[in-house]
Design a protein around this nucleic acid. Structure first.
Lengths: 352, 352
DNA sequence: TTGAAAGCGCTAACAT
DNA sequence: ATGTTAGCGCTTTCAA
């Protein structure tokens, strides 16, 4: 090989990295002074501070993060793992909600100085016990998730996008379910629907439980029959089948005039199912899905969605995390963030 | 201060973690001995080794990863970032390909002892310069991606799922494009199609360039006209519009009898577009999409897909990475992995 | 076969 | 205002 190979692995030190002491020597100062200058601490004369900085810049100095971590006792590293409530774990990122929550969490965390390590879905704490994690974000945990317990037992604080009330060290951000369900059902009602049907996962997560409860309450208030179809499993197949069940109508053969799908499914597939069952959307069926799927905007007609606003959840969660980690003060365990109903043609009754 | 607060460090350490020296003291041994016992190095009497291990276990000792890193000089941390070729960067994970590649990369890496940090899409090296990354995985970089340059300039090896030939320190795994395109077109041909049309992104990535070339070559070989529609932008909207252009037929008004969509789009949406244009699939149009989208299995008819096998790419890439990092030997810069054609009803001519 | 001691690169008490 | 020094917790020569 001709050209001096500077890449390769560490074994044969690629480029003997510039250390603090090198900068100090070069600038004719001490480590302390240079360190203070770069970290903007201590009392230094402006001239010296500038000189230290200039030298560091010129030499291309990059502080060694590991050494800093060791000194600080914190690694500025957080884990991100999917809880047990998620079924199709190996491919959880394919869900637009998780995809966006994940990306937003990583971005927000980094902005606040924390690197986010993606932990394999469904992995147990033992698999990553060696990592110096300051905290772990557990998405969509079960009511009594084992991963949450494992992490807490290891003395690591847990942050979640689902309520994990009552466990010290566990914090959460969740959506305002009550308001969410009402916004969708109120919208249907305003559009004239009187026989709405709900498709919701048969799970123990707070969100789904509360969706069910909020729907029941709303129906009672409005004197409308409570029609619900529960989905046992996650995935497009099961959800579409549940939708089809919902669309066949009640035992008396009365067909619904509005459909709220809370289980995650591809909006185009839900729409196609409605078509197969002879519904015109929005002519004789108003449709809304709880979904972050962008394909909802591209169907004919576009599908109304109730967005859980994963970015907002991520931001609130990371702010919370940083506050707990850095101020250590007694923070509230939970926070609610609002949802957003994006009304599109699929749920707007035509005039005339 | 009431409780003996060691100097620099955590605000108020939750559980004063057990250190190596604690185990040593408890076992009546030295740090050296315990370290050797736990790492299975050195020459120790079986009795002592067992005693050290037992004590460590009993005390719940967990080695401090940061200290180890500082000693070792490597952090066992790799970065993962999306290259410049990806358009909708903020939501790149919503693409099933990226979602699966990302998850599989994280899982494989962790299995090999490396934690994967998810870096915000489109972020520059400066935003995470502080992280002690041993390597960075750049997905879908442009032909001369700036992120790749930045990372290489920082002396960090780069691994990619797209060819980045010719830059020392850059390694890649890519798909066998030629074989991929041929498998799809051959399949169409076997099913009797004679007027296939290709929809492909107008990008400079090796994959898309080679898809174009392989298609041209295949058409020439088979004496068939080369029909191609280029998509300028990523996203369901632009791709669906390109599909519609492709389906309107050539200037002479001759309509295609097979459609290969290489640009990423939701299969249900592509299918719906074909319907809108009066095609029966697979009756008068055979359809195949390059996609990892699971919704392809749930349409009516299910859509044939050409899978790039992100999991295989991830595994090959991480194996490669580990080899380069740990053996440092002169490894080949690139590897090809095969694709897989999942034939479904959308591309199978009916009998009778 | 085991232990003492040096030091990875950095920051912060404590001098000067 | 700047420098000296002592570690953070671990692994690894090198002595005993």
């Amino acid at each position: 090989m001709t050209h001096g190979s500077r890449h390769g692995g560490q074994p044969s030190s690629p480029t003997p990295r510039v250390r603090l002491v090198d900068v100090a020597r070069e600038a004719g100062l001490s480590k302390t002074t240079v360190s203070a200058a770069l970290n903007d601490t201590g009392r230094l004369s402006p001239a010296v501070r500038e000189k230290a900085r200039e030298t560091a810049r010129r030499m291309g100095y990059r502080p060694n993060a590991t050494a800093r971590q060791l000194r600080a006792g914190r690694a500025k590293l957080i884990g991100y793992v999917v809880g047990e409530a998620v079924d199709a774990r190996s491919v959880f990122l394919e869900s637009p909600y998780f995809a966006r929550l994940t990306g937003a969490t990583a971005a927000t965390a980094l902005r606040r100085g924390y690197a986010m390590v993606l932990l394999p879905a469904g992995s147990l704490q033992s698999e990553w016990a060696d990592l110096p994690l300051d905290a772990v974000v557990v998405t969509d945990p079960d009511a009594d998730d084992r991963i949450v317990d494992d992490v807490l037992a290891a003395g690591i604080p847990v942050f979640s996008d689902r309520s994990v009330e009552g466990r010290p060290g566990a914090y959460w951000v969740d959506v305002d379910t009550e308001a969410a369900v009402r916004s969708a059902l109120d919208h249907f009602h305003e559009q004239g629907a009187r026989r709405p049907v709900l498709v919701v996962p048969d799970s123990t997560t707070r969100f789904h439980t509360e969706v069910f409860a909020a729907h029941r309450e709303w129906c009672a208030e409005h004197g409308l029959p409570e029609r619900v179809v529960r989905v046992g499993e996650a995935g497009n197949g099961p959800v579409v089948r549940a939708v089809e069940t919902a669309l066949t109508g009640d035992p008396a053969g009365r067909r619904p005039d509005a459909l709220l799908v809370v289980a995650e499914a591809s909006p185009p597939l839900v729409l196609a199912a409605a078509r197969r069952h002879g519904y015109d959307v929005p002519g004789d069926l108003l449709l809304a899905c709880v979904s972050e799927d962008v394909t909802a905007e591209h169907t004919e007609p576009p599908v109304t969605t109730l967005s859980l606003r994963p970015e907002a959840i991520a931001e609130a969660g990371i702010e919370h995390l940083v506050r707990v980690l850095e101020q250590g003060g007694r923070e509230p365990a939970g926070t609610l963030v609002p949802t957003r109903l994006d009304v599109r043609a699929s749920s707007v009754r035509q005039h005339g």
